[in-house]
Design a protein around this nucleic acid. Sequence first.
DNA 1: TCAGGTTTGGACTTGCAGGTCCATTTTTAG
DNA 2: CTAAAAATGGACCTGCAAGTCCAAACCTGA
Lengths: 201, 201
Amino acid sequence: MTRAFTRKGEATRARIVVGAAAEIRERGVDEVRLEDVMARTGTSKGQLFHYFPDGKEELLLAVAQHEADQVLIDQEPMLSNLTSWPAWLAWRDRLIERYLAQGVKCPLNGLLGQTGRRAPGAQALVTGLMWRWQAAITEGIRHMQSTGDIAAEVDADRAAAALLAGIQGGVLLLLSTGRIDHLEAVLDLTIERLRAGARTA
Amino acid sequence: MTRAFTRKGEATRARIVVGAAAEIRERGVDEVRLEDVMARTGTSKGQLFHYFPDGKEELLLAVAQHEADQVLIDQEPMLSNLTSWPAWLAWRDRLIERYLAQGVKCPLNGLLGQTGRRAPGAQALVTGLMWRWQAAITEGIRHMQSTGDIAAEVDADRAAAALLAGIQGGVLLLLSTGRIDHLEAVLDLTIERLRAGARTA
DNA sequence: TCAGGTTTGGACTTGCAGGTCCATTTTTAG
DNA sequence: CTAAAAATGGACCTGCAAGTCCAAACCTGA
């Protein structure tokens, strides 16, 4: 089903996705018209529909995919290397820094509500992202348990689930209130708590 | 600036808001047309613009207000009565139950992304909701500290901030993945942790 | 160099949803 | 009872943004 694109074609397609993603991040999903994307990426309507035959919906899905990947890419290699407390703190700082920098613009929040209903695939996409994210955290906890840095009786899965939820909520609150406090509180208290349990182990 | 509405007028206005809210909850903000609201509430376009001169934007804001109020109303009286562990657990159950029941439909998530950008007031509205919510939690923690059920050294503000974030994230994850696990994990682990600290106090 | 494809540009169509308007009915108040 | 104001119904307008179409430019390989 994959259409044949030349190298040039692939490049154009990628340019459109990246440009659309940027536009959406800056102005919000529902404020972005195809024309805006065209203007930004220097493309024509013909091209848009050439590379995304199903139109806006398909483009939005591609953007969501792209943005979802970015989220995890941005946390590498910290995320997949949670093997010591300094590493955990580095990851913590990375998260704070990143979300502080991008401020009120969350690429996925909008896409969740918007695309979520339109494209059935978008839901699965976000779910997949969350799943990968949580898996990485779980693995980090497990590793720390193997070295005795976290108490063995901690349920890694549940702890990771709670932490992921906290992070998502923290970001959500950053989005709506503009304050990073919640995210910080979640990360610091959670890490603190994971450490505390093992002090005696 | 408040226009003069008769009793009948107020009733109609309220009917529109409630109907629109329901419609939005069921089908999502961007899928709801004014006509849908008209059909559901048995009103005409004339009425819509009579009661909401600024059109859709004003209506959406009113809906957001209405929904925000509902969120807290739904948790009363549990939320403002977190004075014993059974009360905390009752609140926990209430949250789980409520969000489990409404499933994938969150009234505010959509409104956040959507209305957030359009109406400047919507942002403030959500912020206010979060603030009230968090304040209630903080007060609950403080009360438990006063009775010695929670350790005095716990920072009530931070703990409440983290918990609120966890709840929001838990709901968000319920929305995107369909699983309630995250919300449960947050609530249970948080409460467990608050209790643990004071066992010896 | 020529023939097949792919890529590109942009004019044109179309549907629809938000918003306007006014004529009619109902209510309120004096 | 009556006049002014509010409530209602629905026809109509309008703009805009998605999507269509096709012709021109371009690559690419034999």
